[in-house]
């Protein structure tokens, strides 16, 4: 645990990356606001600097005047407001998670905002657990939508789901090479392809590197996906497409991000731990991870960062 002597040193140390666990149905904006508010609350509770003094020259001007040092009331926290307010913090997210997605969320605080931008452009891989349910299709592809159709799913077996999922993964291999920005039949492309999976050059198309069914208990199933450039709605449609290819229907019941680059769920701070001490410890651990993995922020090659 970190103990801070006063608020000013604590505020200066709050620069860097933070890894939090975003609950589902809470937007990123709200997470940012809660964290900022909690930080301000904890900083304002720490020992404050002494009140500023001000020089006053008083007395009649035609006689020797008196110079006094008096406390400056304009500096009093009751007059000029709390020392730290939400607007003092800059906060940005690394990879956007939708409203209904829960899981690992990387936030940059103050100078860490630069890091989140670099992480975003480095296109780090994300791993998701996607929970789905067979037998029902909805208009939004998610549980909150209107039911569009109901089907039987007795014929779906673990083998069938595995083969469809393997097929989906293979189909994405091509997109991966297309998004590298090189000519498909060139020597450079060949050399790049021999190194293993490659990062996309831009963020236009979602790329899936691995997809696997980790839990199957009809009608419920869970997929584990490693991908880049994906977004919430895209993951929902994956489940829907899976349902169609299995000759039944399916909708998504939950999306959970379990890993972003080297930052996994174990590191993430739960909502009840969004407090100054925990945040400071978490920032240190994130900094260590970034130092251990230099390629994470500014990668030198087109090879994929796992």
């Amino acid at each position: 645990m970190v103990y801070f002597r006063d608020a000013a040193t604590a505020f200066k140390s709050l620069n860097g990356l933070l890894c939090v666990y975003k609950p589902a149905c809470v937007s990123i904006k709200q997470v940012q606001k809660t964290i900022k508010t909690n930080l301000c609350r904890d900083l304002n509770a720490l020992p404050d600097r002494p009140l500023e003094q001000r020089v006053e020259i008083v007395g009649p001007t035609n006689e020797p005047m008196e110079v006094k040092l008096v406390p400056n009331y304009a500096d009093h926290p009751l007059a000029c407001g709390p020392r730290y307010i939400n607007e003092d913090f800059r906060c940005s997210w690394g990879i956007h998670l939708g409203l209904f997605t829960s899981g690992v969320l990387l936030l940059g605080i103050n100078d860490g905002t630069r890091l989140t931008y670099q992480l975003n452009t480095a296109r780090i891989t994300r791993a998701y657990k996607i929970h789905g349910q067979l037998g029902k299709a909805t208009d939004t592809y998610f549980w909150n939508g209107r039911t569009m159709e109901r089907t039987t799913f007795g014929h779906v077996t673990r083998e069938k789901i595995d083969s469809v999922v393997a097929h989906m993964q293979a189909a994405h291999q091509k997109t991966m090479f297309e998004l590298s920005g090189l000519h498909m039949e060139s020597e450079t492309m060949y050399e790049l392809a021999t190194q293993g999976p490659i990062r996309p050059a831009n963020n236009k198309l979602p790329v899936i590197y691995g997809i696997k069914c980790v839990y199957f208990d009809p009608p419920n199933f869970t997929l584990e996906i490693q991908s880049v450039n994906e977004y919430e709605k895209y993951l929902w449609t994956l489940v829907h497409d899976l349902g169609v290819q299995l000759k039944t229907s399916a909708h998504c019941t939950g999306v959970q991000c379990i890993r972003q680059g080297k930052f996994n769920v174990d590191l993430a701070l739960l909502r009840k731990h969004w407090q100054l001490e925990h945040i400071a410890v978490n920032m240190d651990r994130c900094r260590e991870i970034l130092e251990e993995n230099e390629g994470l922020v500014r990668p030198k090659s087109a090879k994929l960062n796992l």
Binding site: P60, T61, N72, Y73, A74, H76, C80, G81
Partner: peptide
Amino acid sequence: EDLSTVAPYFPKSFNLAAYTNGSETLQKLI
């Protein structure tokens, strides 16, 4: 002459903190 009673008006301000040093009332309230 004794000019200590000559003082400028309170200029416009965005907050009450600007007036606290010149106002006994605000100081008492604090």
